[in-house]
């Protein structure tokens, strides 16, 4: 704080000028033009959804390209909140997502450590198996998983098909494998000397993991939690197969059901999109720094 106030900071315009120095003004204008165009392309569909959500019911299907309609209204939001199961969908999604993410972190934290620190028999096949699960699209595992769940539901009476428990179990396949992979990559970057020092100080191998490595890995554990969260939060095909009934819909299924009722629900759909997209966008942008570094921690090390 004190060092900053001692030096007279250059004004913001000076800083902007200095930062943009290097290209000729014409070239800079061109670059800005391209980037602004790209930004408009990137953001325009999102703004359109917002504008549709504000339109009154009789003008939903309009050919106008206005962004804020002249007779803007909140009617679509009222309809969404009071006449559809929007809250139910979001609640189901939240439950499924949180449990999936927690289970992924819980199971992967120790497994990733085992892969990182020991050369036990079966390590290489295990790692290849983990990679294979990442290449395996969820749709391909859908037939056996679905039929297996049907059998379990029938034989043991555990309702895996048609309940969010089944969906949590199904999501765990993707989340556990991915979490192990990322966490193994992160543990690899922690020098083994730390545990050795802890062991010399008298703790056991497990104690070193629990007292030294886990606290150091909090950022990586948070990244893994966030990754699993975003994976389960936006997943569609598995949910569609495992949750056929409307009372256990997640928001992805709910939004789809709004849109498939042809044109009538277009405004409600847009309102729902806005309400889901704002927290999702905020979460992503807020965590993007760590998410992107997380991508490079584990999977693309080279």
């Amino acid at each position: 704080m004190s060092t900053q106030t001692l030096i007279n900071p250059p004004s913001i315009w000076k800083r902007l000028w200095r930062r943009s120095h290097g290209d000729s003004p014409l070239k800079r204008a061109l670059i800005h033009a391209i980037l602004i165009f790209a930004c408009i392309v990137a953001i325009y569909p999102a703004i359109r959804v917002f504008s549709v959500s504000l339109r009154p019911g009789d003008r939903l299907l309009s050919t106008s390209l206005d962004l804020i309609p002249q007779d803007a209204t909140w009617a679509n939001y009222q309809r969404l909140l009071f006449q559809t199961d929007f809250f139910l969908w979001v609640w189901n999604s939240l439950l499924i997502t949180i449990v999936t993410s927690l289970a992924g972190v819980l199971l992967a934290a120790t497994a990733g450590y085992a892969f990182s620190r020991w050369k036990f028999p079966g390590r290489a096949p295990g790692l290849i198996l983990l990679l294979t699960t990442q290449m395996m699209p969820a749709v391909m595992m859908l037939i056996p998983t679905y039929l297996m769940f049907v059998e379990i539901t029938r034989t043991f009476g555990v309702p895996l098909v048609g309940s969010y428990l089944g969906l949590i179990v199904a999501y765990m396949m993707g989340s556990v494998a991915f979490s192990i992979w990322i966490l193994k990559g992160y543990y690899d970057t922690i020098p083994i000397d730390l545990e050795e020092a802890a062991k010399i100080d008298g703790t056991s191998e497990l104690g070193a993991f629990y007292r030294v490595i886990l606290p150091l890995s909090t950022p990586a554990l948070a990244i893994v939690f966030l990754f699993n969260f975003t994976y389960a939060w936006v997943e569609y095909p598995l949910a569609r197969v495992i949750l056929p009934k409307a009372e256990s819909f997640t928001w992805t299924l709910g939004l789809r059901s709004l849109q498939s009722q042809f044109n009538t629900e277009w405004g409600t759909f847009a309102a729902a999109s806005v309400l889901v997209a704002i927290p999702s966008l905020a979460l992503f942008l807020w965590s993007s720094k760590w998410l992107i570094s997380g991508l490079t921690i584990g999977s693309v090390k080279g």
Partner: peptide, 18 residues
């Protein structure tokens, strides 16, 4: 520019369909 990636895909796809 990151927004298309940050938007949940289901929302993006369904809105683009419209």
């Amino acid at each position: 520019l990151v927004i298309p990636w940050a938007l949940p895909q289901v929302i993006a796809a369904l809105s683009l369909r419209g």
